[in-house]
C-alpha cells in the first residue's frame, strides 16, 4: 500500500527490475535498518551483522530478476538475511551445515517449561521500549536463547512473518515453528518478568491455588457489595 504518496515496495521492485537503480536504493533505505537489526540479533555480532546485511542486499541485486513476488519483498529479504545469518552463525560455532530441524530435534521432545516467575509488569511495553537500557536488556536476553528458537521468535514475532513464511525461511516444518515459538516466548517472558515484574504483584508458583482462591473471595465479596448497593438503590 502506498504510504503518504510514496511508491510502495511492489512499484519500486517493478522499476528496479526494469533497471532503475534509484528505485532499488529506495528499497534498500526502507529496509536496511530492519535487516541490519535482525542480523545483529541473529548473529549476536556487529561485524557479522554488517556481513549479513551486505550479503542480503547484494544477493537481492543478483536475484531480483528471478524474484517472482509470491511473497512480499520484505519477506523475501528477511528470508535471505535469515539464511545468511544462520550460515555465518554455524560457521562461527564450527557446526556442520545441517538443517535446524536436525540440529535441535531432541530438544523438542521435552515438556513445555512452566512459568515460574509470575508478576504484572511495572510498566507498559511502550514506555519500556523508549529506554536505552531496555534495548540492551532485550539483546542480551534474546542472545541466551537456543539459536533455533531465537531465529523462529525473531522472524515470527519481531519481523511479523506468518508461521508458514517462517517455516519456509528456516526450512523447518510449521509444527516445529510452533513448538519453538512457544518455548522462545515462554523463556523470554520468564527472563523479562524477572526484571520488569512488580515484586508486590507477584504470584509465587506454589501460591497459585491460594491466590486464585483469594481472588475468588475478593470477587465474591465485590459482587455481594455490588448487589447490596444495587438493592439499596
Amino acid at each position: 500500500m502506498p504510504d503518504h504518496g510514496y511508491p510502495d515496495d511492489q512499484e519500486l521492485v517493478n522499476n528496479a527490475k526494469a533497471g532503475d537503480l534509484a528505485a532499488f536504493e529506495t528499497l534498500v533505505k526502507r529496509h536496511e535498518r530492519r535487516i541490519y537489526g535482525l542480523a545483529r540479533r541473529l548473529t549476536g555480532s556487529e561485524e557479522d551483522a554488517q556481513d549479513v546485511t551486505q550479503q542480503t542486499f547484494l544477493s537481492a541485486v543478483k536475484n531480483l530478476a528471478g524474484f517472482r513476488e509470491k511473497a512480499a519483498f520484505s519477506t523475501w529479504l528477511t528470508t535471505i538475511a535469515a539464511n545468511a545469518a544462520l550460515k555465518i552463525a554455524r560457521k562461527r560455532r564450527g557446526l556442520p551445515t545441517i538443517s535446524l530441524d536436525q540440529a535441535t530435534a531432541p530438544d523438542e521432545q521435552g515438556q513445555i517449561p512452566h512459568p515460574e516467575y509470575i508478576a504484572d509488569w511495572r510498566e507498559t511495553p511502550d514506555r519500556l521500549a523508549q529506554r536505552a537500557e531496555t534495548h540492551r536488556l532485550l539483546d542480551s536476553v534474546i542472545a541466551e536463547l537456543n539459536p533455533a528458537h531465537r531465529a523462529v521468535f525473531l522472524l515470527r514475532d519481531s519481523e511479523g512473518l506468518s508461521v508458514s513464511d517462517t517455516a519456509r525461511a528456516l526450512k523447518i516444518s510449521e509444527a516445529n515453528v510452533k513448538v519453538r515459538l512457544l518455548r522462545a516466548r515462554l523463556q523470554l517472558r520468564e527472563r523479562l518478568t524477572r526484571v520488569f515484574g512488580d515484586e508486590q504483584r507477584r504470584y509465587a508458583p506454589g501460591a497459585h491455588a491460594a491466590a486464585t482462591h483469594a481472588q475468588k473471595q475478593v470477587n465474591d465479596r465485590c459482587n455481594r457489595n455490588l448487589t447490596l448497593r444495587e438493592n439499596r438503590l
Binding site: 535498518r33 530492519r34 541490519y36 537489526g37 545483529r40 540479533r41 512459568p115 509470575i118 508478576a119 504484572d120 509488569w121 507498559t124 511495553p125 511502550d126 519500556l128 521500549a129 531496555t134 534495548h135 532485550l138 539483546d139 534474546i142 521468535f153 525473531l154 514475532d157 519481531s158 511479523g160 516466548r185 515462554l186 523470554l188 517472558r189 523479562l192 518478568t193 520488569f196 515484574g197 504470584y203 497459585h208 491466590a211 486464585t212 481472588q215
Partner: peptide, 23 residues
C-alpha cells in the same frame, strides 16, 4: 489471575520486541 498475568506477559514480550527495533 496467574494465567491471566502469564498471557499478558507474553503479549507484552512480543510487543516489546516488535517495538524495539535495533539501532
Amino acid at each position: 489471575n496467574p494465567c491471566r498475568v502469564v498471557v499478558d506477559n507474553v503479549r507484552q514480550t512480543i510487543t516489546l520486541y516488535r517495538k524495539n527495533k535495533p539501532c
